[in-house]
Design a protein around this nucleic acid. Structure first.
Ligand SMILES: [Zn+2]
Ligand SMILES: [Zn+2]
Ligand SMILES: [Zn+2]
Ligand SMILES: [Zn+2]
Lengths: 160, 160
DNA sequence: CTACGTGCTGTTACAACGTAACAAGTTCGC
DNA sequence: GCGAACTTGTTACGTTGTAACAGCACGTAG
């Protein structure tokens, strides 16, 4: 299942670098990067796929029991700080792996086959989205969209 | 623009017409439009906002108790038949109010203020989406996206 | 008429996802 | 020390979605 890492269109985002960036971003925002928050972020950063809240409950609870509510609170903080994202169509969470253009839309390409989620920014899609919204008199909030489909690896692995 | 026809503002989706269309679509697809399925669709068609599965459980259970699983099964059938859509960010369901272009993307404009969801098709957004997906080697499946924000009515009602 | 397959719904129980309310520990400044 | 703000623990609960199996309706073959 863990395909060979032929990821070339995006940096493989090493977990350690991601964690350092998160720590730095927290300091910059005056948000505490507590041990629990670090543990949650680490698990997400080291996972190949997004994780559910209860996946985290289980992984963090190996040594000592952690209640779901604690995990959800941490997730809320990390989302608020822009360090992670939530995939609504899957009820899962993943670390943000690039700085966001505040004026651009973000697309999460969710592979229904392997579960991997690719996060990309797209000026084209931003334009299309803004145009569509404007035509309906709608003011978008987050401008993050999720699209399900088949990723490049799975397409080559299983043609059809 | 987006509208293939005179489709410009939120018109008060006529429930009776919607229900007739649904019945016709079922017949055309060889899908039974049973009393329970009709009841579920009617509730959705007559609601101003999308409804949750348990909202339907409550509304259908006025006379006789209906189990959640029964509602979910009906919802699955109606979704499969293309008669309703599910809003993943809200865990709610709403009737499809226009024929879908199989080659186009659909956008659900979800108002975070009043809860109303507007369903629009947009060639612009379709292009942006396809371009973004192609650049990542991704083959989109459904091509339905949800965007949260503030609808036209709420913008004029409560300026911010 | 009987038997059987297929499709729809009922019943029960449960899994997965998420939150409220309150207590207790930590950090920090006074 | 002492209180304020923040973080986490504990318990219990609410919401959303599903599994497994039984009954019923209907058409069809024997
Ligand atoms: Zn991001
Ligand atoms: Zn894949
Ligand atoms: Zn539709
Ligand atoms: Zn509104």
């Amino acid at each position: 299942m863990a395909g060979p890492s032929h990821d070339h269109h995006h940096h493989p985002s090493p977990p350690e670098a991601l964690i350092r960036q998160a720590e730095e971003a927290c300091r910059a925002q005056g948000v505490q990067f507590t041990p629990l928050r670090r543990r949650v972020f680490e698990e997400l950063a080291r996972s190949r796929e997004p994780l559910g809240a209860y996946d985290l409950v289980e992984r963090l609870g190996r040594e000592r029991r952690i209640a779901p509510i604690s995990v959800y609170r941490v997730l809320d903080v990390l989302i608020e700080a822009g360090l992670i994202h939530r995939i609504a169509t899957r009820n899962t969470y993943l670390p943000c792996h690039h700085a966001h253009d505040p004026h651009g839309a973000t697309v999460f390409l969710v592979c229904t086959s392997c579960g991997v989620v690719d996060e990309v920014c797209s000026p084209d899609l931003t334009r299309g989205l803004d145009g569509t919204a404007a035509a309906a008199g709608f003011r978008p909030g987050g401008r993050a969209v999720e699209v399900e489909g088949e990723c490049a690896s799975c397409r080559t692995a299983a043609p059809g």
